[in-house]
Simulated scan of single mutants.
Amino acid sequence: MLSPGSLFQEILDHDESFRLFCSIAAGGEAQGGWENGRIAALVPPECRDLAPKIARHGADEDKHGRIFRALLRRRGLDPVPVPPETDYTMLLERRGIGLAHQRLESDRPLTVHDVIVYLAHSRVTEQRAAEQMALLCRHFGDHPELGRAVRMIAADEDAHLAYCHEELLRLAAAGHGRAIRRTLRACALAEIRVHRDVSLAVMARMGRILGWSPARSALLAAGIHAVHRYERLIGRRRMTTLTMPERRDPLGSPPVQSPEPAA
């Protein structure tokens, strides 16, 4: 049966596919950690109260990267370079979504508009991350090798998403609603396309590693394209709406130094 659970179980059971999966995940988290760290250092005076929350977000992303690398070490595996066509973060940047690395490498303070761009980008990408981790939790939350790591990361992603909702609503109340709506829409449309392209690239590489038949690969690709069409027409709304979360100020406390998988 071709299901998300059985598909990921197949990836998990093969060292090379698992190594690629963890390497891609660790690379993305490391980039996110660096970006959030730079943004926290560059926030404008009007947004200084956000700096510790952004720094906390970055610390969580760094932690997730360490978790994925630790999962590799447990199997005696080394990371592999992230194939460019699977680099979700950099592909989004090339589409002009989020704050460019060149901008973050400078010491020039950000503007309030830059902060809106950052939060809108995070609102969209954290929605994707939270959904993906919820799916993994559903299938592997009790897995002896992955369960603890999956549950820990899923809880963090939920907190990141809640924080984005809350801070964007606060900025909307301060008069930035139109800019936020416009930026969220642009981010969502770009993310949906990049997610499709990255999904196709990852599945193509997994198929070569695992020896999938052309028919199975074609079926998976058709499913990815179907999801993309749905998201463009209807599904993107879940990425562009804002709702005050039940858990307020989710990044206002120090990060939880949860145990990582043993090396």
Rank of each mutant, 00 (worst) to 15 (best):
M1Q: 12
S3G: 06
G5M: 06
S6V: 06
Q9C: 08
E10H: 03
S17L: 09
A25D: 10
A26T: 02
A26V: 04
G27M: 02
G28S: 10
A30M: 11
Q31M: 11
G33W: 05
R38F: 09
I39P: 07
A41N: 07
P45C: 12
E46K: 09
E46M: 01
L50G: 08
A51D: 02
A55R: 10
A55P: 00
R66E: 08
A70Q: 02
R75L: 00
G76N: 03
P83E: 07
P84H: 05
P84K: 08
E85H: 04
E85R: 14
E85I: 06
T86E: 13
Y88T: 09
T89S: 13
M90P: 00
L91T: 13
E93I: 13
E93H: 15
Q102C: 13
Q102H: 12
R103E: 05
E105H: 12
D107H: 14
P109D: 06
D114M: 04
V115W: 06
Y118Q: 08
L119R: 04
L119Y: 06
H121D: 09
Q127M: 07
R128S: 15
R128L: 13
Q132K: 13
M133Y: 12
H139F: 12
D142A: 05
A149T: 04
R151L: 03
M152G: 11
A154Y: 06
A155P: 02
D156A: 08
E157K: 12
A159N: 12
A159V: 02
A159Q: 11
A159T: 08
H160S: 05
A162N: 12
Y163A: 15
Y163F: 15
E166A: 09
E166P: 02
E167W: 10
R170Y: 03
L171D: 00
L171I: 01
A174V: 01
A174Y: 03
A174W: 01
R185E: 15
R185W: 12
L189W: 11
A190H: 05
E191Y: 13
R193M: 01
H195C: 09
D197Y: 00
V198A: 03
L200V: 05
V202Y: 03
M203H: 13
R205G: 04
M206N: 10
G207Y: 03
G211T: 01
W212Q: 02
S213V: 02
S213H: 03
P214T: 03
A215T: 03
A215F: 11
A222M: 08
A222D: 07
H225S: 13
H228N: 12
E231L: 14
E231Y: 15
R232T: 11
I234S: 09
I234M: 14
I234Y: 10
R236M: 12
R237H: 14
R237G: 10
R238A: 15
M239N: 12
D249I: 05
P254A: 10
P255G: 04
S258G: 14
S258D: 15
P259H: 11
P259C: 04
E260C: 08
A263H: 12
